[in-house]
Amino acid sequence: MGDILGLVAKRLGLGLLTLLVVSVLIFFAVELLPGDIAEAVLGQAATEETVAALREQMGLDRPAPVRYLEWLAGAVTGDFGVSLISGDRVTEAISGRFVNTLFLAAYAAVIAVPFAIILGIIVALLRNSIFDRVANVLTLTSISSPEFFLGYILILYLAVKTSMFPAIASLSTDMTFAELLHRTFLPALTLVLVVTAHMMRMTRAAIINLLASPYIEMARLKGTPPWKVIVRHALPNAWAPIINVVALNLAYLITGVVLVEVVFVYPGIGQLLVDAVAKRDFPIVQACCLIFAATFILLNLAADVGSILTNPRLRHPK
């Protein structure tokens, strides 16, 4: 077990290091601004005094590395500074929306993961049949469509023409859980469609990859029925790649969620990020980017650690 713990610890350390480098990147990207933040925010018309006042207020007179360390220390304790436009605390603007975004991603994941894995296994079982071909074309189409295309199609057919679900996912605090699920069904479904297609293809590829191994051929030669070959022989070894696939696709959800939130006017962190980018509200942009990047890195880390932990060769060393 010592080996495996060492491997996991090494991977965790590498993940933390990546996160640190990314935080440096996010912070110093803003330093690349022509002039500085104060000039960029106030624009050309600002007088010398107002620029100087804002600089002092934001602490821009101190060297950048010092400000970076302060920002990082703040970010770790959940304090991202003050919004340039509204003057509110960034943490307050983000926290509620972050929960909403996590809810949407979790909603989509709970539907998509079992669905995609089961479909992927079925398609791997029926490979090269006409169903496999149809599934291939359908998943390819779903992957190739921009999220807003799928979103608007769902709005058109499920919200406007048949009014089964609301087109705009506005949330309020006094909603029951069932109502919440109903309100957020369309954005979740859009994410499900994209992620399921990805996951299905990758699950299928992972299983078919395994089916080429000699021990599967042995099982087939001794007369085991095809479904049993997959469920009893291939699947236990396929868990590592499948866990990888799931984590990678959850990471993919992070990007997809930005576009979907804009389409459905969902009050999440992606919408906030897009607004902040348009208004050039840098503290919010930095905070949102850091949160998205951290989630992405953590999920990738989970994928790696998961595949280390489910690898039988590493779990039972000789």
Partner: peptide, 18 residues
Amino acid sequence: DVIMSVPSLIFALLILSI
């Protein structure tokens, strides 16, 4: 590795905001 560890859309939004 570093560039690929940031989601592409997020990276683009960060740079375009600047």
